[in-house]
């Protein structure tokens, strides 16, 4: 079976600074993978390389078997038009929601469908309402984002990504900018998605979420994957001191008895 995402030898440098130093990662279809690590470990950069928000310096990425870019003289070349097409197949949700403030909730969720995918207004509206219902915000369809709470904004952002019928969803610290009491509603939406069988890659600091929802946890350190495996193993019996230190530092981490 082909993996939804297959990453081989991924490297990324920003001028002199090498942030990713050779990442191999497989994400099976329907799998939820959580990337952990302290800030600067490269986990967000890794996530952003998957949909080419950042262009990798070296290495290969496959989406459901399709190699992204073309190999030319030992290097990968990317054409912007191909990358745009690729990004329609991958949903992304950001830390700061990034909703379009000049559009209503409904228009936000319809925009990519009509402008990028060329769906008809009626079809786009239909799909948008389905996804808004899924995140529990169908009654906010006509509101502008400014009128929503942070948790609601983030759920709209999730609906906007889902409306494109993505093969994979990427979550980039989506609860980090939220008031603590609003974190739960967003995590619940993500849990629901995982249970529905959506393939997901999440960068998060919510270790409880990683434990309960992830099929696989990857711990990144200094641009490399230091440990990866089922959450019970990585989170409860880590092999390296680095991961033990990281987990000890997270007071939120409570083990079930």
């Amino acid at each position: 079976m082909t993996n939804a995402v297959e990453i081989r030898g991924l490297r990324k440098s920003f001028s002199d600074l090498e942030v990713l130093k050779g990442i191999d990662l497989d994400v099976a279809e329907g799998e939820a993978v959580v990337l952990l690590g302290s800030s600067g470990s490269g986990k967000s950069t890794l996530l952003r390389c998957i949909n080419f928000m950042e262009e990798p310096t070296a290495g290969q990425i496959r989406l459901n078997g399709d190699l992204i870019g073309t190999e030319q003289g030992g290097r990968m070349r990317y054409h912007e038009a191909d990358l745009c097409k690729l990004r329609t197949r991958i949903g992304m949700v950001f830390q700061h929601f990034n909703l379009f403030p000049h559009m209503t909730v409904l228009e936000n969720v319809m925009e990519g469908q009509t402008i990028v995918l060329g769906r008809s207004k009626a079809e786009a509206k239909d799909k948008a309402m389905t996804q808004l219902l899924r995140v529990g915000l169908e009654m906010k369809a006509e509101e502008y984002p400014a009128r929503l709470s942070g948790g609601q904004k983030q759920r709209v952002a999730i609906a906007r990504a889902l409306a494109m019928d993505p093969e994979v969803m990427l979550f980039d610290e989506v609860t980090s900018a939220l008031d603590p009491e609003l974190v739960g509603e967003v995590l619940k939406t993500m849990l629901q998605l995982a249970e529905d069988g959506m393939t997901m890659v999440c960068v998060t600091h919510e270790i409880g979420f990683a434990y309960h929802v992830a099929n696989k946890v990857c711990f990144l350190h200094d641009g490399l994957i230091l440990e990866q495996g089922a959450p019970q193993f990585v989170l409860q019996t880590p092999e390296t001191q680095r991961v033990r230190d990281f987990l000890a530092g997270h007071s939120l981490f409570k083990l079930p008895n």
């Binding site: 928000m53 912007e80 949903g91 992304m92 990034n98 925009e111 990519g112 402008i115 990028v116 494109m164």
Partner: peptide
């Protein structure tokens, strides 16, 4: 910059992001 990123993430080209977002 986040607005550009949001457009890009749903597959918009530079011109589409400029015009619509």
């Amino acid at each position: 910059r986040e607005q550009w990123e949001a457009g890009k993430a749903i597959g918009m080209s530079y011109a589409q992001s400029m015009r619509r977002v």
